[in-house]
Nucleic acid binder design. Structure first.
Lengths: 229, 229
DNA sequence: TCACTAAATGAATGATGTTCATTTAGAATA
DNA sequence: TATTCTAAATGAACATCATTCATTTAGTGA
């Protein structure tokens, strides 16, 4: 790629106005830069100005490739969907495959919480990796003999649980601390305290969010499996 | 309340600077005004400026009563939590009570989607109605003989599903329309089409989101109930 | 009487997403 | 070959919004 200058990346000479000989931007470059920026600064740092700067471009240049910031988020979302592990649907029993898929799905988007509204509310049109993911899951359900007319409902139900659980991963440890109002909710406060004790016993890796996720996921898979039988 | 002027509300004379004889604002008034504003203009219309205007006050005056806009959202959230129906935990069997509670919870916050991150990520400290809600639910679980150390995990799992399902209520009807990429995911597209047929048969009130919610909730309650037994 | 605090106004600020006029490069067209 | 059109960049300007700060005024406690 580097044609003339050897390692002149540090000193960025300003590009003059007008269309450059070689296009600087593309959907792929924007997606990668956004992902990198999020990794470094979080979603708080993902602004159109910062994104443009990381690409050594004026902010307005981005709008030749995306319609809006939402569009950028959609690009990132679809890219990440490719990281969701659907391989188990090919060779594992249905219940186990769902569990592996759900864990992977939750883990990916727990680290990208602001994308949840994007996934949950925007049509999958023009999101190829997302569609590929759904196809693999659908195949897994069909192979397990799931009733055709309610496959999507079952997937949606599992996804709903996954999205909510992704939030829970990011909840602070003291989210259920009632503070001065504790005495007004004695049973709740006691239950919260017992939860804290239990998770202190276990390994730190297996935290509260994981316990709740596993409990709920196991229950839902069992419940759905019963419908199946 | 109206002391001197009979119906002079239309012409708002400007209040002069300085502390007024009678306080204009309070947490309660701010909460009610925010709720009313959301009802009229949605969360897009809930700006500090609009909120101030609806209270006939300068925007900066709000900051004498709340620390930030997040604070306003927290006030609204706690108020709405009082609308969640927990009455069934007092007199109905556990499974039925959970179902009634979950439906009510989802319905309330499906109409207030931007509050989901607030509920899911902010500590319950200083949210009295929220704490009261949790106390009632905890009592219901205890009365049903649920193992004490995992009551909170079970509630969190159900809540996660509820939050995700609230998003789903607001998803557009064509969210699974693959568009031109349809042929690349034939089984998924067919499943989506079958879902459309099924929901067309049923009453319009019972839509796709309700079907998925009921399926998932029934499964999770059954699965959790099996853990209980 | 005098400080102090609470609660209002009004002006200002900084961040952010977005638009628009302009410039330039290359491809298509006459 | 000259001309036109479109894509892709710059740079200036905007509108919206949350928030802060200096200032003013009312009541309260020392």
């Amino acid at each position: 790629m580097g044609l003339v200058e050897p390692a002149q990346k540090t000193v960025q000479e300003r590009r003059r106005a007008g269309r450059p000989a070689q296009a600087v931007l593309s959907s792929t470059r924007i997606t990668n830069a956004a992902l990198k920026l999020v990794g470094q600064t979080g979603y708080k740092g993902l602004t159109m100005a910062a994104l443009a700067k990381s690409l050594n471009v004026a902010p307005s240049a981005l709008y030749n490739h995306v319609h809006s910031k939402q569009d950028v988020l959609l690009l990132v979302e679809d890219h990440l969907m490719g990281r969701v592990d659907v391989s188990a649907f090919a060779d594992k029993p249905w219940a186990e495959a769902v569990s592996i898929w759900a864990h992977s799905y939750r883990d990916v988007f727990a680290a990208h919480l602001p994308l949840i509204p994007v996934i949950a509310l925007l049509p999958v049109t023009n999101a190829p990796k997302t569609i590929t993911m759904y196809e693999a899951v659908t195949n897994g359900f069909q192979a397990a003999g799931w009733p055709h007319e309610s496959i999507i409902d079952a997937i949606v139900a599992l996804e709903s649980f996954i999205y909510g659980s992704a939030y829970d991963v990011n909840a602070p440890l003291d989210i259920f601390d009632a503070g001065t109002l504790g005495p007004q909710a004695p049973n709740f406060s006691a239950a919260v305290a017992r939860r804290g004790l239990k998770s202190a016993e276990t390994t730190p890796a297996h935290n509260d969010a994981d316990a709740a996720f596993t409990l709920g996921l196991t229950a839902m898979i069992a419940g759905l499996g019963a419908t199946l039988a």
